[in-house]
C-alpha cells in the first residue's frame, strides 16, 4: 500500500482525527488519553459496520488485530489500516516483524514498548491530544482527539564537542569529514542499536547524535532519555541518502517531487522503511555519473567543495538556522 490517509473515527462522545503517512505508526504517551478507546471504536466498527454507531471516514478499510490467532487473521487483511492495542506481546516478536515486512497494510500500534524489530520513523511516533468542544445537545462534551508528534527531527543550537553517527559507512565518512574541518570528534556507533551505549560512554560535553530518522523510532526513547544525564542534541533526517537527494546534486526533476510527498511513491510491500527507498532512489539516479552512490563507501566526489556545500545547505534547511554547521564557511 502507498499513500497518506486521513482518518476520522467518531461516535457520540469522541472524535479522533489524524493522518497515517507510512506503514508503521506508533501511539504512546500518558494513560487515559484515549488510545485504547480509539482501537475499541475501530474494532466495534469492523465487527458491526454502521450498526455499531461508530463512523469511520477513510479511503481504505480500517480494522483491528488482537489475540493469539493474529497470524491467521493478518493473512486475510489486505490494503487496510490495522490498529493494534497495547497488551498483545506478539508486536515485539520476530514473527510479527516478518509478517508485516512485505505487507500491503499500514499499522497503527498503541504501545510504549520500543519495537526493536520494526524500522519505524521518529516522525510517526505520536501522542494523543484531547480537547473539548461545547455542545448543548450532549450531556458530556465531545472529545476531539488529534495525534501530535512526540519527537522532532532536529534543533541544533550549540556546537557539539562530539558527533555520534549511527552508521559506519558513507554517512559516517561524510560527517567525519565535516567534523574534521570543525575540529570536532566524530564517532561511529556502528549501528542504531549501539547509539544508546555509545552516547552513554561518551564523556564529551555537548553530544550530537546523527541517525536515520526514518528507522530510528525504536531507539529514540532510550536515546532521548539520556538527556536527563547528558547534554544531548539530535539531528535525524530521513537518512543520509535523503539529504543528498534533497541537496539537488543529483539531476532528475522527479526527485524533488518524490521528496515533497514520498508516501505516494513508497510501496510498503517493497520497502519496510523509507530509508531503504531513498537509498535505492539515490543509487539508481546517480548510476554512471561521477556521483555514483554506494552505501558501503562514500564516493570521494561528495567531499568536493561544491558537493559538500550543497549537502551542508540541505542540512541547514532541515535543522534550526543557528546550527553548528554554519560555523566556518564550509570550505
Amino acid at each position: 500500500m502507498r499513500g497518506s490517509y486521513s482518518v476520522v473515527v467518531s461516535n457520540n462522545l469522541m472524535q479522533f482525527k489524524f493522518t497515517v503517512n507510512r506503514n508503521i505508526t506508533i501511539l504512546r504517551g500518558d494513560s487515559a488519553t484515549g488510545k485504547s478507546r480509539l482501537v475499541e471504536l475501530v474494532r466495534e466498527y469492523s465487527l458491526n459496520g454502521n450498526s455499531s454507531g461508530v463512523t469511520i471516514s477513510c479511503d481504505v478499510g480500517c480494522t483491528t488485530l488482537a489475540g493469539i490467532r493474529w497470524q491467521n487473521e493478518i493473512k486475510e487483511i489486505k490494503n487496510s489500516i490495522i490498529f493494534i492495542d497495547e497488551g498483545f506481546d506478539f508486536i515485539s516478536s520476530e514473527e510479527f516483524a516478518r509478517a508485516i515486512r512485505n505487507s500491503d497494510n499500514y499499522y497503527v500500534i498503541a504501545t510504549r514498548e520500543s519495537l526493536f524489530n520494526l524500522p519505524y520513523s521518529i516522525m510517526e511516533v505520536y501522542g494523543l491530544k484531547n480537547k473539548t468542544r461545547k455542545s448543548k445537545y450532549q450531556v458530556y462534551d465531545r472529545i476531539y482527539s488529534e495525534f501530535y508528534p512526540l519527537y522532532d527531527d532536529g534543533i541544533i543550537t550549540n556546537k557539539p564537542d562530539a558527533v555520534i553517527v549511527e552508521d559506519s559507512n558513507a554517512g559516517y565518512e561524510f560527517f567525519k569529514a565535516i567534523c574534521q574541518k570543525e575540529g570536532i570528534m566524530c564517532i561511529s556507533a556502528k549501528g542504531k542499536t549501539n547509539v544508546y551505549k555509545t552516547v552513554k560512554d561518551c564523556e564529551c560535553g555537548i553530544i550530537l547524535v546523527v541517525a536515520d530518522g526514518a528507522a530510528f523510532g525504536s531507539e529514540m526513547e532510550r536515546a532521548i532519555s539520556l538527556r536527563k544525564a547528558k547534554n544531548l542534541l539530535f539531528f535525524l533526517p530521513e537518512s543520509f541518502e535523503w539529504l543528498i537527494l534533497k541537496s539537488g546534486l543529483i539531476d532528475g526533476s522527479e526527485i524533488q517531487d518524490v521528496l515533497a510527498h514520498p508516501y505516494d511513491f513508497i510501496d510498503s510491500e517493497k520497502y519496510f522503511s523509507w530509508e531503504r527507498f531513498f537509498t535505492r532512489l539515490l543509487t539508481d539516479c546517480s548510476k554512471d555519473t561521477y556521483l555514483q552512490y554506494k552505501k558501503d563507501r562514500l564516493n570521494k566526489h561528495y567531499l568536493n567543495k561544491k558537493e559538500m556545500k550543497a549537502i551542508r545547505e540541505a542540512i541547514d534547511s532541515t535543522v534550526d538556522r543557528d546550527n553548528w554547521l554554519h560555523i566556518g564557511d564550509g570550505n
Partner: peptide, 15 residues
C-alpha cells in the same frame, strides 16, 4: 469526564 458514566472495565489501562 470524557466518557460519561462508565464501568470499571472502561478505566484506562494505566489506572
Amino acid at each position: 469526564k470524557a466518557l460519561g458514566m462508565i464501568a470499571p472495565t472502561q478505566l484506562s489501562g494505566g489506572v
